[in-house]
Structures are given as structure tokens and as C-alpha cells.
């Protein structure tokens, strides 16, 4: 890791941290105030004021959407540079990829709006992969206790078996369906919520760190 921290670099770090903080704070405030016209009472013009306050967030978020959409260009550049580099090392699949890329671009430029290539290639291949995925999942499910030989592994397998059995329309398995319903409603619901709350907590902490300019990627 480089230890260079010159004055210019220090300024760059401060500037990027400031920009991150400023943009984040403006967006957060704008969202908080602008989304709630009730804050300004019933006076005439309060709705307009709320709309005005919501404007920065709207503009910034719309910009983000545009940037995200445009980032596909970065992706294509990345894909091409990686595979051109590999091509020079004689990788056959890279050559196939680059040739396919060129052909697909040609196809869409000459036949605007024709998605048949996508339908004929991408969709069947993804469908085949989805079928393979089923086998991978089955194999993974059959060796849970090989990976986690503890009570939690056992519980995981038991729940998986109950849920699978309950999804079959066999009259004799009706009691299992009641267990499944309870499992889904109580422990699974609680667990899923706990995980999502945990992720939300982590998101807030990371967001706050980014807003404070403490995040490494924000610090330049």
C-alpha cells in the first residue's frame, strides 16, 4: 500500500469528502422536508414550498439514474479491455466473445428493434443454466450436514424437507402443510425480518460513515 500523502493528495481527499458530505446532506434534507408537505401547515403556498424543497433530491436522484444507465458503457469498455488483453495471451474464448460482441452490435445496428438474437441465444442459455441451478441446489441441499454438522445444519435440513413436502399436493401430507404454514408465518417471517433489519442497520451505519467523509472510497 502506498504511503504517499502529499499536500495535493490531502486536498483531494478533503475535497471529495466535502463533496460527498454536501451532496448527501442536501439529498437527505431535501427528501425529509420535501416529501412531507404537512410540515408546513395549511398555509397557502406550503405545497409549492415542499415541492421546491424536494427539487434537489429529485434532480440528484434522476442524475443518479442516468449515470447508472450510462455506466453500461464502462462495463463494455471493461469487458473489451479485459478480453483484448487475454486475446494477446492466446485465449480462445476471448476471441469468441469479441467476435460475438462485434456480430451482435452489427445485428442490432442493421436490424433496429429486432430482439430475435437475444431470444434465440440468451434466453435458452439462461433457461438451461436455471435447470442446472436446480441440480446444484439439490446437490448442495444433500450435503448440508457435510458442511455444517451441528444442530443448526440439522434444523436447516429439517425445515427444507418440511417446506418441500408441504409443497406437494399429497393428501396424506396435510399435517406437514400446517407445519409449513406455521414455520413460514412465525420463525421464517421473524428470521427474515431480523436479517433485513440487520442489513438496514448496517446500511445506515455505512451511510452515516460515508456522509461523515470517513469512508475510504469517499476519502479519495
Amino acid at each position: 500500500m502506498s504511503n504517499r500523502t502529499g499536500r495535493g493528495q490531502g486536498f483531494g481527499i478533503a475535497l471529495s469528502a466535502f463533496v460527498a458530505f454536501a451532496v448527501g446532506a442536501v439529498t437527505a434534507l431535501s427528501l425529509l422536508l420535501g416529501d412531507n408537505p404537512a410540515l408546513f401547515g395549511d398555509q397557502p403556498g406550503s405545497a409549492q414550498l415542499a415541492g421546491l424543497l424536494a427539487l434537489p433530491a429529485d434532480v440528484l436522484l434522476r442524475l443518479v439514474t442516468i449515470v447508472v444507465a450510462l455506466s453500461i458503457v464502462i462495463g463494455i469498455a471493461n469487458l473489451l479491455t479485459t478480453h483484448v488483453g487475454r486475446l494477446s495471451r492466446g485465449k480462445f474464448y476471448s476471441a469468441v466473445l469479441l467476435a460475438s460482441f462485434g456480430f451482435t452490435v452489427y445485428w442490432y445496428v442493421t436490424r433496429r428493434g429486432d430482439t430475435s438474437l437475444l431470444e434465440a441465444v440468451q434466453v435458452p442459455i439462461e433457461s438451461a443454466l436455471a435447470a442446472l441451478l436446480c441440480l446444484s441446489l439439490l446437490h448442495g441441499g444433500s450435503r448440508v450436514l457435510g458442511k455444517r454438522a451441528d444442530i443448526w445444519g440439522l434444523l436447516f435440513v429439517a425445515v427444507a424437507v418440511i417446506v418441500l413436502l408441504a409443497s406437494t399436493p399429497i393428501a396424506e401430507l396435510a399435517p406437514v402443510q400446517a407445519w409449513r404454514d406455521w414455520l413460514m408465518r412465525v420463525p421464517v417471517g421473524a428470521g427474515a425480518r431480523a436479517m433485513l433489519i440487520g442489513i438496514a442497520l448496517g446500511t445506515v451505519v455505512t451511510g452515516v460513515r460515508a456522509l461523515l467523509g470517513q469512508d475510504r472510497s469517499v476519502r479519495g
Binding site: 448442495g140 448440508v144 458442511k147 436447516f156 427474515a192 436479517m195 440487520g198 451505519v205
Partner: peptide, 24 residues
């Protein structure tokens, strides 16, 4: 961060983190 993926991670990976452990 998606529950479907988390279930697969728990069942199949050598090691797994759960939920907010990712952030810690």
C-alpha cells in the same frame, strides 16, 4: 443481502456471514 442467496450461502458455502455481519 437477498434472502434467497443467503439461504444458499448458509447451506453450501464453507463459511458464511449472515445479515449485518457483512458490515462488521
Amino acid at each position: 443481502d437477498r434472502l434467497e442467496g443467503q439461504a444458499v450461502a448458509y447451506a453450501m458455502a464453507d463459511e458464511c456471514l449472515i445479515g449485518e455481519e457483512l458490515f462488521a
